[in-house]
Design a protein around this nucleic acid. Structure first.
Lengths: 204, 204
DNA sequence: ATATGGTTTGACCATCTGGTTAAATTGTAG
DNA sequence: CTACAATTTAACCAGATGGTCAAACCATAT
């Protein structure tokens, strides 16, 4: 994945990644991570002083991965009609490869919301609200209905991220067999941009 | 709250409720619950044999509360234009009184998805997909655009629930000061039904 | 071969955690 | 007042958990 590495340190990171993502901070056990990495527990503390340091390393990694599609694609200076579908597709593809990421990130951020602030300006120190600006421009020109643009952004993120977190609920509520859920998510890659621009249209 | 109770058992349940909601199964400590209830730890095991039994009691309680608005209001035999706003308002009101509920419920359901199945038919054994049926009827009549009605349901739940789970993210991403977030959520009570019916409109 | 520095391990430790038990306390019926 | 059952407590236990440490291992430069 990274720069051609099968070092002990990267094996630890891979293992910690899996265990923390599966069990979260509270549920993860240093012994499990050691087992998963095929090493001694003491070696964990040799490379990462303690559980917290190891978690921090994992979390920053996952945080970056989770928000990369938004940070990379949504901040470009392109029309919404082009950016939004690209973002949705990139996010869905990224997360389908590791569906636990959003639940993990949001759970840990709820456990210590302060982390969101520190992470935000480590990962995206100076991000302009270009998305909001584009929405406002569209409203001014009459292309979009007038509304709080932040509500629209909330709609977008909700529709994109939520189904990954609520899989157990939605698969039951929508009577979707486990095997069909992935197809349902893939379908959303096309459905969400459609819905998003539809909900922005003026009433007339 | 319930039937006029200040019994030890209900004090335990209230305390367990707070602690489990705040910390989840993995993070919750029996000692913390005992302290919060102002009793001895052994007394916890006197009323509830073990942590699991106590958790089950709490979880069922919270699960019912969380899904009551949907189960109660969305299954009524009324036009969508009336039901949806009522549902959204009821849900937002309910959860704003205890904002940790959705994150807790979804986190625990992701930890053991099987629980969703057992809970679902304990709480709503025979629920007909009336919402989907109504959407399909609307599509047949041309009032709504043609689409997978389950995608529309997913849109709705996403927009309603997600902002409660993603508060740390959205408050930073949307530059919403902590004090304004509640107002932002209240505004969604009106915004979401508007967006929902807008995204259902046919293209023409 | 051997000294050196980084790497890895097994054994160990203090503390925490869910759970148990026997005794003490309290309320109540006779 | 007393006997009895339900409630509550302090003390305790076994296993788990994060973390430490001295010794062993290993590669490599001399």
């Amino acid at each position: 994945m990274d720069k051609a590495n099968d070092t002990t340190e990267s094996r630890i990171l891979e293992a910690a990644n899996r265990v923390f993502l599966r069990s979260g901070w509270d549920g993860a056990r240093m012994q499990d991570i050691a087992d998963e990495a095929g090493i001694n527990k003491a070696l964990l503390h040799y490379y990462f002083r303690n559980k917290e340091k190891l978690f921090d390393a994992v979390f920053e990694r996952v945080f970056r991965l989770h928000f990369r599609p938004a940070l990379q694609l949504l901040t470009e200076d392109r029309p919404l009609e082009a950016k939004i579908p690209d973002f949705v597709e990139a996010y869905v593809q990224t997360i389908m490869a590791n569906p636990f990421i959003p639940a993990f990130v949001l759970h840990e951020l709820n456990r210590s919301p302060q982390r969101m602030v520190t992470m935000a300006d480590r990962v995206a120190p100076e991000i302009r609200p270009i998305l909001v600006a584009q929405l406002q421009a569209g409203m001014a020109s009459g292309r979009f209905r007038t509304m709080d643009p932040r509500q629209a952004v909330a709609h977008l993120f909700s529709m994109v991220i939520f189904p990954f977190i609520a899989r157990p609920v939605l698969s039951v509520a929508l009577a979707l067999p486990a095997t069909d859920y992935d197809a349902f998510l893939r379908e959303r890659m096309h459905e969400i941009p459609r819905a998003f621009f539809a909900l922005l249209r003026p009433d007339l």
